[in-house]
Simulated assay, not measured.
Amino acid sequence: MSVNKPAIGISCGDINGIGIELIVKAFSDTRITEICTPVVFANNKTINFYRKFAGEPNFNFNNVKDFTRINLRQVNIFNCWEEEVTVTPGVLNETGGKYAVFSLQAAVKALQEGAIEGLVTAPIHKSNVQGEAFSHIGHTPYLKEAFEAKDVVMMMCAQNMRVALVTEHVPVKDVASHITTAAILSKLNLIQESLKKDFGINKPRIAVLGLNPHAGDEGLVGYEEETIIKPAIKEARNKNILAFGPYSADAFFARGQYEKFDAVLAMYHDQGLIPFKSLSIGEGINYTAGLDIVRTSPDHGVAFDIAGKGIADPASFLEAVYQCVDIIQHRYEYQDQRSNPIKKVMPEVTAKLIDEKIDE
């Protein structure tokens, strides 16, 4: 596929949730095929079922069973199953999870084989996907295993902020036991690498939050900041990572300090995601940093309460598609600069020569 127009795989998510409705709405605007070639891993009958709810009767697609038949100018539906499936919008059942896994497995296989260049995942429900084929608590750990990554980091991205997590879907009572200097350092390394490679930021600044109220108050309200988090920040800075903190989470977000940083590393799920969803500007997305491939997703769940009602908003899903394309492009540019380092200094050299010419 073209560097400027990558093939983007789309997993359909829980077929009883809003995922397929979002896909139909998002790709009804044919202009999106000018920036990427969408490949939806689902079934054409299931797509047609939701097309009537989405209010997009003119949504057209190319039905394919192998990647040699992909139409570069159209949405492509790669059929992952042929059998008749009963779709029940808004219902949590085994069927919804089963076919969500079928879709994800097919998309991952296509990524591994190089048939697509990026992946946007529609939401799944963590309880009904569990089984022999999927024993993870979400997309992130599943993709980490599938692509044999040593570590990954869940990073929420919006127009005005990026928030990454040390721990993800871990019970609050267990969070502290997962906070280690090694874990924090690993996440900081991944965040720095991703900000450079995936977002084009040469010298990223990363804020690190404390675990306890008031960032431990110098040991009065917990010891993790003094014995774990501060040593991790010090070691990170010794490795040329511009990490700062630890900051008290409440004051950090309330005073808008996040605006001074390229990313924020939170210790646990709600510490990072509540302020992100409250303060982010524009549509937020979830990005998995640390993988060899690019994976994004909208920042919401299956929304069973509105499934099949035709009112689901595709804005976050669309942003996930745009970001997936942008990150792929950033990676090509980053690789090009690394293989041709002179390109990094060319603008400065050109400007200097122009100045010298003017002086003459």
Results as ranks from 00 to 15, higher is better:
Pro204Lys: 10
Pro204Ser: 14
Pro204Leu: 15
Arg205Met: 13
Arg205Trp: 07
Ile206Arg: 09
Ile206Tyr: 05
Val208Ser: 08
Val208Met: 08
Val208Cys: 14
Val208Glu: 06
Val208Gln: 05
Leu209Ala: 05
Leu209Gln: 02
Gly210Ala: 11
Leu211Pro: 04
Asn212Ser: 12
His214Leu: 10
His214Cys: 09
His214Phe: 04
Ala215Leu: 04
Gly216Tyr: 02
Gly216Asn: 04
Asp217Thr: 09
Asp217Asn: 13
Asp217Pro: 05
Glu218Leu: 14
Gly219Tyr: 00
Gly219Gln: 05
Leu220Glu: 11
Val221Pro: 01
Gly222Tyr: 06
Gly222Ala: 13
Gly222Leu: 08
Tyr223Asn: 15
Glu225Asp: 10
Glu225Met: 07
Glu226Val: 13
Glu226Gln: 15
Thr227Ala: 15
Thr227Leu: 14
Thr227Asp: 15
Thr227Trp: 04
Thr227His: 15
Thr227Cys: 11
Ile229Ala: 01
Ile229Asp: 02
Ile229Val: 07
Lys230Thr: 03
Lys230Arg: 14
Lys230Gly: 00
Pro231Phe: 01
Pro231Cys: 02
Ile233Tyr: 01
Ala236Arg: 00
Ala236Thr: 00
Arg237Phe: 01
Arg237His: 00
Arg237Glu: 13
Asn238Lys: 10
Lys239Met: 14
Asn240Asp: 15
Asn240Tyr: 12
Ile241Pro: 02
Ile241Gly: 08
Ile241Trp: 08
Leu242Thr: 10
Leu242Phe: 12
Phe244Arg: 02
Phe244Cys: 01
Gly245Trp: 02
Gly245Val: 00
Gly245Met: 02
Gly245His: 00
Tyr247Lys: 01
Tyr247Ile: 08
Ser248Ile: 06
Ala249Pro: 03
Ala249Leu: 04
Ala249Thr: 03
Asp250Ile: 02
Ala251Asn: 06
Phe253Arg: 04
Phe253Asn: 08
Ala254Gly: 07
Ala254Trp: 11
Ala254Pro: 10
Arg255Glu: 15
Arg255His: 06
Arg255Gly: 00
Arg255Ala: 12
Gly256Leu: 03
Gly256Gln: 07
Gly256Trp: 01
Gln257Asn: 08
Gln257Trp: 05
Gln257Val: 00
Gln257Glu: 12
Tyr258Arg: 03
Tyr258Ser: 05
Tyr258Met: 06
Tyr258Gly: 05
Tyr258Asp: 03
Glu259Asn: 10
Glu259Pro: 00
Lys260Met: 11
Phe261Asn: 06
Asp262Pro: 04
Asp262Val: 04
Asp262Gly: 09
Ala263Trp: 01
Ala263Lys: 07
Ala263Thr: 04
Val264Thr: 15
Val264Cys: 12
Val264Ala: 13
Leu265Gln: 00
Leu265His: 03
Leu265Gly: 05
Ala266Gln: 08
Ala266Gly: 12
Met267Val: 09
Tyr268Trp: 10
Tyr268Arg: 03
His269Leu: 14
Asp270Glu: 15
Asp270Gln: 09
Gln271Trp: 03
Gln271Leu: 11
Gln271Asn: 09
Gly272Arg: 01
Gly272Lys: 06
Leu273Asp: 13
Ile274Asn: 06
Ile274Thr: 14
Pro275Ser: 11
Pro275Leu: 09
Phe276Glu: 11
Lys277Cys: 05
Lys277His: 03
Lys277Leu: 09
Ser278Arg: 12
Ser278Cys: 13
